[in-house]
Design a protein around this nucleic acid. Structure first.
Lengths: 219, 219
DNA sequence: ATCTATATTTCGAGG
DNA sequence: CCTCGAAGTATAGAT
């Protein structure tokens, strides 16, 4: 990893055109071949960057990176304030929990927490327009199509409706019941869902964890 | 801007939970109050981060950042390899050109390039669920609703269908014709669009530029 | 390799 | 303030 702090100008030509007039910035060159140019604002996002794969040439105080697809990033260095290179070594990487995949897993393990007559048929039930998050049956044997989101918006409801439309073509499943499950459901999505006969359920992740694994709550 | 290179462990608890086991990483603290933790891979995206507004406390080799909403980022520094702070000053910022707005502008200027009997009624035609990209009429006087994307996916088709549903309530416009225009249209979006009676047109940006301003192609 | 769906998406515009 | 749509989206998983 190279940390280069310099007064510099930058141009990018590729999917769009972009220019940066001279100022002091951090040029971050990673071992993976990427370059990112950071200012002291714009939290976490670089002003300009280039992702691998790209070839990087440096000469005469100018760094030029090119991708095979014809994108070009050119950095002109006017004054170098700091230039250090460090060996960072391997990184085990990030472990995450609480993303949609876990949400779906937790709900699958306890569909009865949504409505007590629900039983799981299967997760990721395949259709020709993609997999349905959860397919269940209710107490009357009616097929229940469940779409799980962390944040539920109108597009998510549409996604559920597309699945229902497909599954309703199967006489063994029609007519399906649609259920939209999310940690947070936007008001407009709720209105839209209900106008389409889709039930909305907001769930609490911590509570669901407790339901699934009650041991965790005993200590 | 502070550039801190250290062997460190990190935990984040907030919208999700995330943990980083000890390794050497760059901790980037910007003047805007943000913190980003970078490894030598994952071009451009930090492993972990915290955006402003947040309060940052440092003591005993531990940095803790908290947002008002209850998110917490905790960095434990085990070994510091480099720790420099620099004054970067103001940055004029980035100038961009050539995004979807230009695409829409070019198509608006030459709707006849899509189908020769199309004439433009207006761009950004307002509805109560947002503006339609382009509203046109065809040779038979039928209203044509056009949605423009750079990359056209299924969600974009649904967006178009929602607009059509709204405009079809207006007797002066119903029944509308839907046209989905993009530089690239995903296969599933194409299938879905055609099953809904929506026409798909892939356009070439450079060619469209030539159509609109033929002078540019003469030199 | 390509396609699909998610993201602590982030970011900006508009109501 | 929220909501919506775009992003040089990036990234991970599945086909």
């Amino acid at each position: 990893m190279r940390l280069l702090v310099a007064r510099c100008s930058v141009t990018y030509e590729g999917r769009l055109g972009a220019r940066l007039s001279p100022a002091i910035r951090l040029v971050l060159c990673k071992a993976d071949g990427s370059i990112a140019i950071h200012s002291d604002t714009k939290a976490y996002k670089p002003l300009n960057w280039m992702n691998p794969p790209c070839t990087i040439e440096e000469s005469d105080g100018t760094i030029v990176a090119r991708t095979p697809k014809g994108e070009t990033l050119r950095i002109e260095l006017h004054e170098i304030l700091q230039d250090t290179t460090l060996e960072l070594g391997e990184d085990a990487g990030l472990e995450k929990d609480g993303v949609e995949a876990e949400l779906q897993k937790l709900i699958a393990a306890r569909v009865a927490a949504l409505r007590d007559d629900f039983t799981l048929v299967r997760r990721e039930y395949p259709t020709d327009i993609g997999p349905v998050d959860l397919l269940c049956r209710d107490g009357d044997g009616r097929a229940v199509v469940i779409e799980v989101k962390r944040v539920g918006d109108i597009a998510g409801v549409d996604q559920l409706l597309r699945y229902q439309e497909r599954l309703d073509r199967d006489p063994g499943l029609a007519p399906t019941l649609g259920v939209f499950v999310a940690q947070q459901i936007k008001p407009q999505a709720k209105v839209y869902a209900e106008s389409k006969g889709v039930a909305c359920i907001q769930i609490d992740l911590d509570r669901l964890r407790g339901d699934v694994d009650p041991d965790l709550t005993l200590f």
